[in-house]
Design a protein around this nucleic acid. Structure first.
Length: 268
DNA sequence: TTCCAGGCGTATC
DNA sequence: GATACGCATGGA
């Protein structure tokens, strides 16, 4: 990663990044495509318009402070994804998946934002998830805190059209606001304990907990198994994923998920 | 009309 | 602990 300041913009040079691979693949739900290789979206309440491809990107109207304090972390620019793909290339299936979408990275999201987002993702599709979250942030004028949402009820959240998930959001907000579930502490617990802690929240099962751990707490050993990944495991990894990938299997999952969803999704 | 969507809670065995 | 089933909503 290398960058330079150009007027009010930041120019970012990063070979292992494509915006379509990270911002439009179901990792984060607050980005909208505003042109070819161009997106507008948010990390919590930090807005960003970013565009570019093939190793060169422009972060429009971004200060160096915001770049270093928010976006370097968000896009995980301190991690060498070429080295990860070299590791994964020891496995034939992962090797294909890495070649299929080279620009994938793990977005390091805020844990609360990730928790809310992935509760909404349950038995839902990406388009609707994005709509629900957009209505929520628009209603408050910012991404609401747990404390703000803890005063809501399933009924008062009716405008979200979130269906049965509204009551889960209220439960999450109340438990996080009261520290009954302490997201900060959970982030540093051993994996199994952290997962169990998150699953105290109604609407958070194994899959949502793993998504929050991976995307919201940068626990790369978390390995979300959704319907698509279950197909991958049945088809290619009947004996489980090779142990050598354990520590970063969550990132391996991103490549595999994107591969199966696009490749197999278009097949049927 | 029916089915499905990055699952989960509940009931039942 | 494993396995069915319902669940809000909206698009295909």
């Amino acid at each position: 990663m290398r960058y330079e300041i150009s007027g009010k913009d930041i120019i970012l040079y990063e070979d292992d990044l494509e915006l379509d691979d990270v911002l439009d693949t179901g990792q984060a739900f607050r980005w909208n495509k505003v042109g070819e290789n161009a997106y507008f979206g948010y990390c919590l309440d930090h807005p960003l318009e970013i565009s570019g491809t093939n190793g060169r990107f422009i972060l429009k109207n971004t200060t160096e402070d915001d770049f270093l304090n928010v976006w370097v972390g968000y896009f995980d620019l301190g991690t060498d994804y070429s080295a990860l793909r070299t590791l994964y290339s020891n496995d034939p299936v992962l090797c294909s998946a890495c070649g299929f979408s080279r620009g994938i990275r793990l977005l390091r999201q805020d844990s609360w934002e990730a928790l809310v987002s992935f509760i909404f993702s349950s038995n839902n599709n990406i388009k609707r998830i994005k709509g629900i979250i957009a209505r929520l942030a628009e209603h408050y004028g910012h991404f609401p805190t747990a404390s703000e949402l803890s005063a809501e009820t399933a009924e008062s959240l009716g405008y979200l059209r979130a269906g049965f998930r509204a009551k889960y959001i209220v439960d999450a907000a109340q438990k996080v606001a009261s520290k009954e579930v302490d997201l900060k502490k959970a982030a540093s617990l051993p994996y199994d304990e952290a997962r169990a802690e998150l699953m105290k929240i109604k609407g958070v099962g194994p899959k949502v907990a793993d998504c929050v751990l991976l995307s919201g707490m940068y626990r790369t050993e978390a390995f979300p198994l959704d319907v698509w990944m279950k197909r991958v495991m049945e088809e290619y990894y009947k004996d489980g994923l090779p142990q050598e990938f354990y520590e970063t299997r969550g990132i391996a999952q991103l490549y595999l998920f994107n591969y199966i969803r696009k490749y197999k999704g278009e097949e049927k």
